[in-house]
């Protein structure tokens, strides 16, 4: 439940990026990826985004295009880089992420899948030329 904070950080980051384009009339779309291991919900984020951008002339109606970032781990022992194992336990009907190397069982670092990353921002520029 920290989507409001994320939405507010997102708004500041987008407005900062748009400053370089003083003729921008409107931001059309923001592409964002959310890591599968982060605790940010896309529906909640869209809701908060809509609420906080509603009064902003540049951002009102701006679409959030959210994709999911897959998890990548890297093993400290054998150098494995790739997907994480998921343990299926039919007894509990749970899919548990296993934070160990699927090759050697060693300790792993998570190299992707925890971030909330803006990849690009699309904006409408009014160049002042009649046409």
């Amino acid at each position: 439940m920290h989507e409001l904070q994320i939405a507010s950080d997102l708004m500041n980051a987008v407005l900062e990026a748009v400053k370089e384009h003083p003729n921008a009339s409107r931001v059309e779309k923001v592409d964002l990826s959310i890591g599968r291991l982060s605790f940010v919900g896309d529906e909640q984020l869209r809701f908060c985004w809509g609420a906080i951008t509603d009064e902003c002339k540049l951002l009102k109606g701006c679409k959030l295009d959210i994709s999911e970032e897959e998890v990548e781990i890297s093993c400290r022992s054998c150098g494995y880089i790739g997907e994480m194992d998921v343990s299926e336990d039919p007894m509990y009907h749970f899919l548990l992420p296993v934070f160990a190397c699927p090759e050697c069982g060693g300790e792993v670092d998570i190299t992707r899948g925890k971030g909330v990353t803006i990849s690009n921002v699309r904006l409408m520029i009014d160049d002042g030329v009649e046409g």
Binding site: A13, A17, V18, E20, H21, A24, S25, E28, T117, I118, S119, N120, V121, R122, L123, M124, I125, D126, D127, G128, V129, E130, G131
Partner: peptide, 11 residues
């Protein structure tokens, strides 16, 4: 005239 511009960022 309006034109669409895409700003690439990895933030």
């Amino acid at each position: 005239m309006h034109q669409l511009v895409t700003i690439d960022m990895e933030k």
